[in-house]
Amino acid sequence: MSFESLFLPLLIVLLAVPMFLQARKQKRAVQEQQKLQNSLTAGDRVMTTSGLFGTVVSSADDSIDLEIAPGVVTTWVRAAVREKVTTEEAAEAPATEQDEAAPAAEAKEAEGEQKDATDATSESSAQIAEPIEKQKTS
């Protein structure tokens, strides 16, 4: 047998095996995602594909209601849920953001107070335009 007669079967095997393995991997990922989305119940903390965290309030066949802030409930397609979030991870993320934001907010307040004091001592040459409603009626 020559190399030419083995070339075509070898080429087919080299292309078919990776394609088969990739399809199998993708099928498994889809099954896991469907299993997760079907297991969601009220009270579960989740993250959507857009990165929004929320708590499941209720669910229907193809949609799910998430509470994203106290008293703010939004409706999402079930497929938009990426993963369940443990309470430890969810508690750490907002606490970290608040800790970082607090010193920055205090610095801005102090800056604003200094600016207000400076503005009070110096007059501004800026003119204020009259409201648009008054401009239309005149």
Rank of each mutant, 00 (worst) to 15 (best):
M1T: 07
F3Y: 00
F3A: 10
E4F: 11
E4S: 12
S5C: 04
S5R: 15
L6P: 02
L6H: 00
L8I: 10
P9K: 01
L11Q: 11
V13R: 02
V13I: 06
L14F: 11
L14C: 07
L14H: 01
A16D: 08
A16N: 01
V17Q: 01
V17A: 05
V17W: 01
V17H: 03
P18E: 00
P18C: 00
P18S: 01
F20R: 07
A23C: 01
A23K: 09
K25M: 02
Q26T: 02
Q26F: 00
K27F: 01
K27R: 06
K27D: 03
K27S: 12
R28P: 00
A29C: 00
V30F: 04
Q31C: 00
Q31S: 00
Q33H: 13
Q33R: 14
Q34K: 14
S39F: 08
T41A: 13
T41E: 12
T41S: 10
A42F: 13
G43K: 02
R45I: 15
R45C: 14
V46T: 07
V46C: 03
M47N: 08
T48G: 12
S50D: 14
L52W: 09
F53D: 03
F53E: 07
G54C: 04
V57G: 03
V57S: 04
S59I: 07
A60D: 15
D61T: 03
D62Y: 06
D62Q: 08
S63T: 14
I64N: 04
I64G: 08
I64Y: 07
D65Y: 09
L66N: 01
L66M: 02
I68E: 04
I68K: 02
G71L: 09
G71N: 10
G71S: 08
V72K: 08
V73C: 11
T74H: 06
W76K: 05
W76P: 01
V77T: 14
V77I: 11
A79H: 10
A80F: 08
V81G: 06
R82A: 12
E83I: 06
K84R: 14
K84I: 12
V85A: 02
T87F: 12
T87L: 15
E88V: 10
E88P: 03
E89S: 13
E89Q: 13
A90M: 09
A91M: 06
A91G: 06
E92I: 14
A93Q: 12
P94Y: 07
P94S: 09
T96V: 15
T96N: 10
E97R: 14
E97I: 12
E97G: 05
Q98P: 11
D99I: 13
D99Q: 15
E100Q: 15
A101P: 02
A102Q: 15
A105C: 05
A105L: 14
A105M: 08
E106D: 13
A107S: 08
K108I: 14
E109D: 12
E111H: 10
G112Q: 12
G112K: 10
Q114M: 04
Q114F: 03
K115S: 05
A117L: 11
T118N: 09
A120W: 11
A120L: 14
T121M: 15
S122I: 03
E123Y: 07
S124K: 09
S124D: 08
S124N: 11
A126G: 01
Q127S: 15
A129Y: 03
E130L: 07
E130I: 02
P131H: 06
I132Q: 15
I132C: 04
E133Y: 10
Q135K: 10
T137M: 12
T137K: 14
S138R: 15
